[in-house]
Every structure is written in structure tokens, then in C-alpha cells.
Design a protein around this nucleic acid. Structure first.
Lengths: 177, 177
DNA sequence: CGCATTTCAGCCCAACTGAGATGC
DNA sequence: CGCATCTCAGTTTGGCTGAAATGC
């Protein structure tokens, strides 16, 4: 992890001040939000990658393994993984190739659809995913934010993601009539 | 921009359910927070990069130009940029090289310290930073979240960043005595 | 035939590491 | 001398595009 010179004040608060001073008041809040999310992501990713490095995984690789690990038999069609992870098909091909190279995953032909591929966790892969999940949970349990802050954060970002077209709501209130 | 298959429900809510079902209740909230921030960052970055592409800038390049644009004379020592942007020195060298190549920035020797470099905005660079800021502000003004949500989000993430050692607080309440 | 699934080659960017040049 | 500043070469990664192979 890179060690940066600690700043004596919040650079985002400073940027917001400058945005306002330049007459961009209407954009200042949004700028602060976007910059905050970018920076928080960097910090979180650094912690996550530190926890995963001993297991030989990146976060992208972990996410795919974790998905497989949640299925009953440790197998899933490629297409499902692509949809669920919301990434580009070639990125998944790439991620899978590395996991196969490391012996954590196997690729098999789909029994019915000759175009499709099945991803299958190896025994080693199953072991790694459980161990790395345990390491990651240590990070997740120590973010330094309160439960109520975290709940609020997740809610706000869920509404943002939905507004950005990330998913359709599950209609928590079923249609009356 | 990649076009993904829209999901019919929130994948993070689903992941949280699985975390809980596996007995990791204490980590489920943190997992949701980290995953939410990661995904929101992807969505925001995609919008930001779409707005910047016509100007020939990435977000990293924009941030450096914007920093320069806020100084009186459009000039700043390399070291200040490194500290303020909180990135690796070689990354700044790289970013600067691209901006110089594109004629938006000039590099000059520091008058007093022979080791140090000065970064100087060119006329073209100044024009580009103002135009691209205007484009970005369009994104910032239309995130789809309310002002109160954004304010809450920024506050929670500021506390997280501070806790993660990103900066030291400006001591809003000066020490009594 | 059109369409879906997946891969491949190749590109770009960001971020890093390690080494070294230069000057305080 | 040690240290700071910065650059360079090279690696890794992820994410993308365009093209193609294969099969529905």
C-alpha cells in the first residue's frame, strides 16, 4: 500500500470551497459527493486488496469465486456470472482465465447449449474462497463507521444506483388491486 | 460505455442476504457498504468519463488541470500536486507527461530547488479546464439524489476517510486553554 | 438468416516497484 | 553524507473495442 503524506485538512472540503467561490454553487454538492465516493473507494479497495493479497486474489477474482461459492454445487453458467457481476464479457473471460491458471476454477461445456460455458469451482477454489472471505470479513467488521451510518450510506447509494439504472426495484410494496 | 443487462433486483441486497444466511451477520453491513461504494464509484466514473471524453481528458488528468486552474498564475510545484492529489509520484509524472504531450501543461525548473519541477498551465490548458469543468458540473448537478441525501453521504464518507487516516481534522473546536 | 455466447488480439489507462539521476 | 525530488523502465491489472468462431 502506498504511504501518502497526511493532509492537515480535508481536500474535498477545500475543493468544495473553491467550487463555491467560483460561482458553481449548484454543482458543489455533487462534486463533493462524487469526489468523496471516488476517494472512499480507493481507501476501501486498498484495505480489501491488502486482505486478499495473501490469498493470491484481486477483488474482481474474489467476487467471481464468491459467487460460485454461493451456489449449491459450485457451478454456474458464464452468462449468469456476467449478468450478476455487471461487467463486460471479455473482463469475465479474462478473470476466469487467471483463476483457471491458478487452479481455482474449471471451465466446462454447457450440456445443452454448445455456445455456453459452465464455470466450476475446484476443491482448491472452494478452500480459497472460504479462507479469503474470512479475511475480508475482518475488513468489513472494522470500517470505523457506526452501524447507523453504514445503513444510511447503503440506503442512499442504493437509491443512487437505482436512479442510475443499475437495477429495477423489487416492488417492495406489491401493486394494490 | 458498456451496456449491461438490467438486473431485476439489487445485487447488493441479495449479497447481504447470503452473507447473513452464512452466519456472517457482523460483516454483512460492512460488506454492503464496501460493495455499494465500489459500484457507485463505477457508475459515477462512467458518467464523469463520458462528460470528459469530448475534451480529451480522463478524470485523473482533469483533477490535475483543475488544481492548476485554481492557482492565481496557473502554476504549482510538482510536490504540491502530489500531496494534494494523494497519488503516487510516478503516477503524477505519467499524468503530466500526457498533458504536456497534449499541450495543456508545461514543465519548468524550480527557480530555487534544482530537484523540483514546476507545472504550468498553458493557454490551451486553461481553456480546456474551464470547458471541461462546465461539462462536469452538468453531471454533478444531476446525480439524481436529493441535497439532503448528498450532504449526509458526504458527511459519512468524510468521517470514514478521516478514520482511515486520509487527513487530520482541522480541529473545528480549538483547544480550550 | 439473425441472434446469442464467448473468445481472442490488441489497446489504453492507472498504479505500482525498483533503480537511478540530480541536487539540497 | 543522508535525504528529498523526480524520472524512467518495466510489470500488472482492469476495462474496453472490434472481429471472429460457434451454435441456437
Amino acid at each position: 500500500m502506498p504511504r501518502h503524506k497526511p493532509l492537515t485538512q480535508d481536500p474535498i472540503a477545500e475543493a468544495k470551497r473553491q467550487w463555491t467561490a467560483n460561482g458553481w454553487q449548484h454543482a458543489a454538492n455533487g462534486m463533493a459527493a462524487v469526489t468523496s465516493v471516488m476517494r472512499a473507494q480507493q481507501l476501501m479497495l486498498a484495505q480489501v486488496e491488502t486482505a486478499l493479497r495473501p490469498h493470491g486474489l484481486s477483488f474482481a477474482r474474489f467476487e467471481l469465486l464468491r459467487l460460485l461459492g454461493f451456489t449449491r454445487e459450485g457451478r454456474m453458467p458464464m452468462a449468469s456470472a456476467i449478468t450478476r457481476l455487471q461487467v463486460h464479457p471479455t473482463s469475465v473471460t479474462n478473470t476466469v482465465a487467471r483463476l483457471v491458471r491458478d487452479g481455482l476454477l474449471r471451465r466446462e461445456a454447457h450440456p445443452e447449449d454448445g455456445r455456453a460455458a459452465f464455470l466450476i469451482l475446484t476443491d482448491e477454489g472452494r478452500k480459497v474462497v472460504e479462507q479469503s472471505t474470512a479475511s475480508l470479513n475482518g475488513v468489513f467488521e472494522n470500517l470505523g463507521s457506526s452501524v447507523s451510518e453504514i445503513t444510511t450510506l447503503v440506503g442512499i447509494l442504493a437509491r443512487f444506483r437505482e436512479g442510475a439504472g443499475d437495477f429495477s426495484p423489487p416492488r417492495p410494496v406489491p401493486d394494490p388491486l
